[in-house]
Write a protein that binds this DNA or RNA. Structure first.
Lengths: 363, 363
DNA sequence: CGCCAATATTCAAACGTTTGAATCTCTTGA
DNA sequence: TCAAGAGATTCAAACGTTTGAATATTGGCG
């Protein structure tokens, strides 16, 4: 292999090696329209040489010239949250056929990293940005810079349509109601609720759904059985919160037959806490989660939960982004969209009919 | 904001806006050595204008000129495997201070995707490649192209030093022995083993460690209690395998008091299978896993497992890669290295002393 | 007054690719 | 014989940045 100072094979190397100009080589290898009137013998020769030398076009030079990076940035708030992964998969699936490269970055719930990566994304001229969101976006002026540079944004996991950003999220209200209705239908009346952290937008919405379902069934929620998770510190803090509140529930003299947890990790924490005190799940107490992440599926008992169609949402997010890019090319404006995905109840083994003996018990 | 055809603010825009040449602006904004003799008033003016216009240097133009992409590719075989995430975090932590950008790609255990992304990585002129490996690398000639282009490679999760690639992995043999010894010390003698899939290199090594520990303690492994997982189809297949074999164990007339599973997901499958038949963990049967991934920590009972220092390995991988890059710059050659990380036993709740009643039981 | 050395700024070429326009070489038909 | 066209290939400029060399503007000193 020929060694050039840059260490990479260029068009010039190939041109010299087979006696044509750089233009011809470029036209052949990039399969430009002009290549149809390059002699087929020439074409063959050039292609063979390119393969032989191990040529790979330089994405930097190409993007600079074409003014296209063929890149879409995916900014996840925390990849260690199993929640993000299916979304990323959906996005990748959507980008693949369009031969766009996802520029995947993990902010690890750190504001500093987030800013840093956002800058890098801008510098790398991503043609679009998909943000997988959480509380980290309380102050969304961060995205101003992206908007200034006219880069289309789509956000997953939060509604930012009021800030002119297309958004995809699960219908949290409906999901909360789904979970609550499930417990009520199983005969539960004394239901403990672990609400999410205040900083999360999902919290209020799910809570609204829970109350609606309760109201519709004429079930009262005892305020003494309502708990609220503290703000998130790391990806496991939901679990610890659930564990902590389970112990608190048991310590209080307040009777309950089911727990509706904010998310799956919290539910798993609750299960741990209750089990530790000898409470059997689901015989003595039902537990329901939210999200349907991997740990909920593989634990024993499997956690009954509200599934979010994350992969589908990711797929749609990538499609919207691509559409916005082509729209911008044609000087058109793609309207801001909102997708409220329908959640689905996944019944596993952590919920059961309330035992007859307990049905009338009061604290 | 000024609108240019490319949609991005360039040095020329700033130069025109404040009446200096492109060179001066570049020198100031890139903080080149020459900038020390640019009048400080000029500096201030240029910087202010850059901020005002929302300038971000074009990474493509810059990399093209500097012949440096400031990028290191991280090629993970499957991000939905919780195993990968801590490694990625470690890598990111190592790359951050060097202001290198990780180009994170997820092959989703698909060969086609893998090839595709490898090509893209080469085109994007990554200065180094870190591969988080698995069976997908059986035929490693894929990496030849990377080597041809003199891009340093480091591999995590497999020993490829015989192919001249620096490698980091956990000491699987020691880990296997650790798990086995733990069970033996708890008094278990009838131990079922679920070996990993044949295609994984880890399988043989862990198995060797298990046998060594057994031999050292004078414990016999009953071949009828040894199972082997089929090859991996997706990220949850370990769980299903464990579930399946647990049922098989129970169906056979072979007595056992503990199960040593290939990894955590398998262990969780085993727990599910045994629990379903009324076997209590750990009172009636102990279960031990391997890897220490999130689901093992948050399930109930928490799974006793062998921890891999994944984050540290990721960190070291990034450091090695950076070293290899600087070595190459100085025309030096960095020798191929191998790191065998020490595993650590994490005792949770899925293992316990064998009950006295069962100690002498035979099938 | 002329010269030197800072100090401050600009020129121009280069990185590797793409592409509209230009050139060159044939063939063909009038 | 020559113009017209088609076919094959090349020219040259451009994308946005960096940087060694060059230029212009000072002030200081002999």
């Amino acid at each position: 292999m020929v060694q050039r100072k840059s260490g990479h094979v260029t068009l010039l190397d190939i041109a010299r090696a087979c006696g044509y100009s750089v233009s011809t080589v470029s036209i052949v290898l990039s399969e430009a329209p002009l290549s149809q009137n390059v002699a087929s013998s020439t074409r063959e020769q050039i292609r063979k040489m390119a393969r032989h030398l191990g040529y790979h076009p330089d994405a930097y030079a190409r993007s600079l010239r074409r003014r296209r990076s063929q890149t879409i940035a995916v900014l996840a708030y925390d990849l260690s949250d199993p929640f993000c992964i299916p979304i990323v998969h959906g996005i990748q699936a959507g980008l693949q056929p369009a031969s766009y490269m996802p520029l995947l970055v993990d902010a690890q719930t750190q504001r500093k990293l987030f800013d840093n990566y956002l800058r890098m994304i801008l510098e790398r001229r991503a043609e679009g940005v998909i943000v997988i969101a959480s509380w980290i976006f309380q102050e969304t002026n961060l995205l101003d810079d992206v908007e200034k540079n006219q880069v289309p944004i789509v956000i997953v996991g939060r509604d930012l349509t009021n800030r002119n950003v297309s958004s995809l999220l699960v219908d949290n209200e409906a999901g909360g109601a789904l979970a609550m209705r499930h417990l009520i239908e199983l005969g539960h009346r004394r239901i403990a609720i672990v609400r999410g952290p205040e900083e999360l937008f999902d919290t209020e919405l799910r809570w609204a759904g829970v109350r609606r379902a309760a109201a519709e069934a004429g079930v009262k929620i005892d305020p003494k059985l309502v708990y609220q998770l503290p703000n998130i510190t790391d990806s496991i803090s939901g679990f610890e919160g659930g564990l902590h509140f389970a112990k608190e529930m048991l310590a209080s003299d307040c009777h309950f037959t089911a727990v509706l947890a904010f998310d799956d990790l919290t539910a798993l924490g609750v299960v741990r806490g209750l089990s530790g005190a000898g409470v059997r799940i689901p015989e003595d107490c039902s537990v329901v989660g939210f999200d349907d992440v991997l740990p909920a599926a593989v634990s024993t008992p499997g956690i009954t939960t509200v599934h979010q169609p994350l992969k589908e949402m990711g797929l749609l997010a990538s499609e919207w982004t691509l559409q916005a890019i082509t729209a911008r090319e044609q000087q058109k404006q793609k309207p801001v969209q909102l997708h409220n995905a329908s959640p689905e109840l996944i019944v596993r083994m952590s919920t059961a009919r309330v035992p007859a003996a307990q049905r009338k018990t009061r604290s």
